[in-house]
Amino acid sequence: MTTLKATAPPVGPDPSAAFADATASESALRRFLHGLPGVDQVGAEQRAAALGTRSIKTTAKAFALDLAIRMVDLTTLEGMDTHGKVKALCAKAMHPDPTDPGCPSTAAVCVYPDMVATAKKALGSSEVHVAAVATAFPSGRAALDIKLADTADAVEAGADEIDMVIDRGAFLSGRYLEVFEEILAVRAACARPDGGHAHLKVIFETGELQTYDNVRRASWLAMMAGAHFIKTSTGKVQPAATLPVTMIMLEAVRDFREATGQMVGVKPAGGIRHSKDAIKYLVTVNEIAGEDWLDPDWFRFGASTLLNDLLMQRSRMRTGHYSGPDYVTLD
């Protein structure tokens, strides 16, 4: 087993210093994480369901649809991905609705590391970021040095954001410190030679963590290790993102800011296909974490098919009639 040494992160405040006591040992970290308030599943799901009943109409809906488009990490993570596919995805990300110049671009495209260079080139000087999944995505089952190399490779190729997966096996067997130190190490690997660094999103694969207590603990663990974003899922495991899981993570970032003054972003990924669902997430962001998080810098949707549904709804709002799949681009 590799013993990790925490390296100073490239930039930005390092929250791990504020939690030096809590992360001093395996037992201290366990005590801290298990000392977080529990989550009652039934109550949490009821709260999320209630937020889902908010009725978002007219101007609020128009605002939400545009915001949701700006928050999309347009994703392709398939074995059959090709450079051509990625280029097409980038074109779509920059101009989701070619017929409407007023339509915003998405936040990022999300690809495997070997596609980063292609994406970077295709996106050129646009503001769309390139996010790369790394660390032996999606299972995370590889030696640490391979995960770090995977990360460094993507960063070197120009990735603006790294979406890493945690070692769920280590987490579920209670080796929290190992998970913590791995995040620190990946964060260090996000450094670029020019002194900048890629933003780090930490994927929990909440479908494998199974309980909301685990989601809350993983959230704090990742935030203490300096994650810039916490992300629900790889999209490869069911269930992927759910509204209650996302709500628990939003509570965590809210409480973390309360405790440290630092904001951390949240990214639900996988399974969000309809505008109506996306709007429920935005309502949840608004009412749980607060309006400060209603920004692509602090909330993202990891999705592929969602974008077209957002576009069709947007067209419906604009034209007054329903659109159809033939009127949005399929790439």
Binding site: S55, A60, K61, L67, L282, D292, L294, D297
Partner: peptide, 13 residues
């Protein structure tokens, strides 16, 4: 920190 410009005001429903 946050740079949100517009608020998410729920229109009457």
């Amino acid at each position: 920190m946050p740079n949100n410009s517009a608020q998410f005001e729920y229109a009457p429903a």
